[in-house]
Amino acid sequence: MTDTEPGAGMNKNSSVAPIPSANGTATAVAEPVAVRIRDLNFFFGQGDLRKQVLYDINLDLPYGQIVIMTGPSGSGKTTLLTLIGALRTVREGSLSVLDQEIVGLGRSQLVDVRRNIGFIFQAHNLFDSLTASKNVEMAIELTEDWQEKRERAVEMLTQLGLSDRVDYKPKSLSGGQKQRVAIARALVNQPPLLLADEPTAALDKKSGRDVVTLMQKLAKEEGRTILMVTHDNRILDVADRIITMVDGRLETDENLAQFVSSHDPKSLDRRMFVM
């Protein structure tokens, strides 16, 4: 399959059965998974302004899987991502990240969970004042590894093809290079779970492709779980599994082949343009 299929939009009118289905992950046997979500509800605001944004989410993400989450804007994808990333406190349901139940955890405990998660944002969020290497070293410093942080940062950047840009500040890097530095920063501590929100949105086609190929390679080689929110259907092919969210609910959960067939241009639905 190719990375770009012009018509492979995200058709939320899919006929595929609701979650969980294709991968059979929701078994009763508690095999170790990176993320296990059960009956998760989430609300924004309080009192009269309380608004539910996630309804009854059930989801398992096994180790080593690349999962792409898609769906229209406002469907709650990013919110779910921030919950899995332990960036918000959760009160209802069960959310287990890397075998740690995070529902009910305080802010301080959430920070400890976050140290095992790599984050890649739409914007690179690098410090302009720090060189590529220093930006990556900021992440290594969390592990208190003072001796080898420089070598590790350089090694990581080299893996991402930036060996000749180690001591450049973000101002002197291209968009793709900056995003690769951000990825190096997210990966350098070898987190078992990587969360990415539109990592290719700010990149041109080639840089975007390079970035996801890199992520795919690292996931496969080192058994990491990657959960990526994206609207960019040029990169869907890296996914083992594609889940669709609509209006705060998990709508579909398919492998790539199913997704492609259900999103075939022949059954193109006008509503895909809503996105």
């Binding site: 960036l87 920070v111 976050r114 140290r115 984050f119 944002f121 914007a123 969020n125 410090f127 900021m138």
Partner: peptide
């Protein structure tokens, strides 16, 4: 002007 970077540091696990 560094709010995003500081927030990112927090996401990474800085307190």
């Amino acid at each position: 002007s560094h709010m995003k970077q500081y927030a990112t540091l927090k996401a990474m696990g800085y307190r």
